[in-house]
């Protein structure tokens, strides 16, 4: 295991970061293509951005960098295996509503009592699909298999985002912006991984580039 004495130190070389970036590009590009086929709308995933953030600055980073103002929807999901961590999707409540409209042709007929329920179902489905696809594709590129837990949907969260990060840890953050159907739905996907997993990831990246 790698020990990082100074939390601002980046535990990844520029070369490794480049490879990771390219693996992400490829993975997310494939995800966009296949997802578009499944849900039948144009899907755009931005070039993923890899950042290392000290745990104590995480909350601050989210509110400053994301400029997302509450209320928003959050979908949290853990994954485990050699590549392990937490994925979470964040998007505005407005986007959540639009997502229901995109996916459920017959949506809305449930009346007022049904809207939250419908939204929850849709978000759980799409969140699971998006994280599963992104994490799965990265793992696939690196020849690994990942296990997932049940996603957790938090509707209209207005409080501070999440307390899932240990203040003393280092968070390896992969951020991507996604858009469905010409902007009707957009948000962020974060992958947070721990240092053990990151060590494996680094080795896998070297193996990856060697195969060409």
């Amino acid at each position: 295991m790698m020990i990082i004495p100074n939390s601002t130190e980046v535990p990844i070389s520029e070369d490794e970061k480049d490879i990771l970036q390219e693996v992400m590009n490829i993975s997310f590009g494939q995800v966009a293509a296949e997802l578009a086929e499944i849900i039948d709308v144009l899907v755009v995933l931005s070039v993923p951005n890899v950042t290392v953030v000290p745990g104590k600055d995480f909350q601050n980073y989210l509110s400053k960098k994301l400029k997302l103002s509450p209320p928003f929807n959050v979908i949290e999901q853990s994954f485990s295996g050699k590549l392990s961590g937490i994925a979470f999707l964040v998007f505005s409540s407005e986007s959540g509503k639009n997502m229901v409209a995109i996916l459920d042709e017959e949506g809305g007929e449930d009346g007022i009592q049904g809207i939250d329920q419908l939204e929850k179902e849709t978000l759980m489905e799409i969140g699971n699909m998006l994280t599963g696809a992104c994490v799965g594709k990265i793992a696939e590129q690196l020849d690994e298999v990942v296990y997932y837990t049940l996603p957790r949907v938090i509707l209209n969260s207005s409080s501070s985002l999440i307390d899932l990060v240990d203040k003393d840890s280092v968070v390896i953050l992969v951020k991507t912006e996604f858009q469905f159907a010409d902007n009707d739905v957009s948000g962020f996907l974060f992958l947070i991984t721990n240092q053990d997993s990151f060590q494996w990831l680094k080795e896998a990246l070297h193996r990856y580039i060697e195969q060409f």
Partner: peptide, 25 residues
Amino acid sequence: CTADSQKKVYDKVMSLGAFMMIKKP
């Protein structure tokens, strides 16, 4: 060269005159 081989993307680049599209990696 792109990993994103959505049909809409393919149609776009071909209409612009690309010779072909290949999938990444």
